[in-house]
Structure formats: C-alpha cells, structure tokens
Design a protein around this nucleic acid. Structure first.
Lengths: 123, 123
DNA sequence: GGAGGTCCTGACCACCCGGCCAGTTTCGCA
DNA sequence: TGCGAAACTGGCCGGGTGGTCAGGACCTCC
C-alpha cells in the first residue's frame, strides 16, 4: 500500500430526496478511501441537500427591515428594538408588520424561522 | 422538471479543513456521474463538516417540550399548540415556561432561535 | 413510604403583540 | 411637478404572552 497513512473518510448521507440519496450512495459506495457512515456513526463530513429555491428567493427587504429582523432574531421585544434603533415602538411595529407580510409569517417567531430557512438571516 | 438524461450530480464542497477538502476533492473528482460545483454554482447537495461537538450539547428536553418546541418553531400560538396536542393552554404555557428556562431564552422567538442554533430543532 | 420528576390543569395579572385607523417627511424617478 | 416608495409617528383595541400562585395524577428510584 502506497497510502499507508490515509484513513478512510467517513461521510454521512443526509438527504431527504431518496432518489438523489440512492444515486449518491451508488456513486460513492465504490469510491476507494471513502465510506458512507452507518446510522448514528460519527462522520467527518455530511452530504446535505442544497435546495435551489433557497438562494434566489432573497426577498426584497429594506435595510430598516433587515435591522429589525436581526434584532427580532435575538429575541428582542418591540420596545428593545425601538430603543436600539432610536425610533418609536410604533415604527418598529410598522416594520414588523411589513416583515410578517413579506415573509408570509403569522408572527415574529414564524418570521424569524422563515427568514432563517430562506437564508435571509443567519442564526 | 430537471429530468434530463444526464444525471450528473453537482456537489459543492464546503469544508474549512483544507486537508480534508483536498482529499475529498481528489477522491470525488474522478467519480463519473458526479461533479464538484464551481464557486457560486448551484449544487444539488453540499458536503459540510460534521463537528463532533455539535451533538453532545443537546439540552435535556422532555418529549413534551420537544413537541411544543417544534410547533413553536412553526409559529403556532399557545392556543394552536394546545389544540394540536390535545392539552390545555395552561399546560402549553407550563411547557413553554420550562423551555424558556432550559434554553435560557427571553421569549418564544428567542427560544426557537437558541434551539435552532444548538441543533435541537431543524428549521 | 417518601422524594423527585414529568405531565397536566386552573386562575390571576401586567405586559406585549399585531392589526386597524390616521398622519408626517424625505427621497428619487418619470 | 407630480407620484410612489420608504421611513417614521400616533391612538386604539382585541387577543396573545409570560410570570406567579395554586393544585392533582402518575411514574421511578432509593
């Protein structure tokens, strides 16, 4: 063996799309020096889905809405956001309303979850 | 929609560990039917690092708390959670209180964000 | 048999949230 | 010059939220 110190790379396949997962498993199963992890096994890296719909859908949020959204994700209340941004609570509620609208959310918690899912913000 | 005859799977390699990334790139570069994504290119899946430290930090949440947490992440109100789980609003508030406590959060939005950050839930 | 944990329920209360109405200013663009 | 978008502010109000009391039922462990 020429590669005496090259340990197998263990990859965990974490793909919901079974068709894609099967194809990947078939392709990767025969690659030397690489192995798919058994269920629960600790892997060096994981293969995860990269949904194409995630990126292009960066909704048109204004700078102020992004400011408010970021603070919302920190769990800040409208009052705290107002203080932080130096504006009134009414204005914060105005921006939150716009965010709920644009993110198609029912409340601030839902808005943060949606934004995180779409990659608008990073948790 | 994308059911072409060339089922080439595009993978983006998102590994900080350059040594590991190089080895993976070398191993995967010669696999037929599979291609590594160019920088910025849209990929079907990504290979990401699996930090072992991620898992052990799963805070001790009861099953019921996980149920409530999952619904909270969907933006559900206490009333909706109660209806969904077949329990009273009071009990939901009880579990939410426990979650805020265990997750060191100031509110439900903060709790969901913390849980997502720690990998307790998946957004 | 207690001790402790989980799960469940009730009531009360201060506060927050989101939606509604209304208005203002400032800016860029046609 | 008018027109819209963005940002900002106010009042009002129904309902939601979080905290604090209280209690009971069920289970396991010592």
């Amino acid at each position: 063996m020429s590669e005496h110190n090259a340990p197998e790379i263990v990859l965990s396949l974490e793909i919901d799309d079974s068709a894609l997962a099967d194809r990947l498993a078939a392709l990767l199963g025969s690659v030397a020096g690489l192995r798919l992890a058994a269920p629960g096994e600790q892997a060096a890296a994981a293969i995860v889905a990269r949904d194409p719909r995630v990126m292009p859908a960066d909704i048109a949020l204004t700078q102020r809405e992004l400011d408010v959204l970021a603070l919302m994700a920190e769990g800040a209340s409208n009052k705290m956001i107002a203080r932080q941004l130096g504006i009134s609570v009414h204005t914060v509620k105005f921006h939150v309303g716009s965010l709920l609208d644009k993110l198609d959310a029912t409340g601030r918690t839902d808005a943060v979850a949606h934004a995180a899912r779409r990659g608008v913000i990073e948790l």
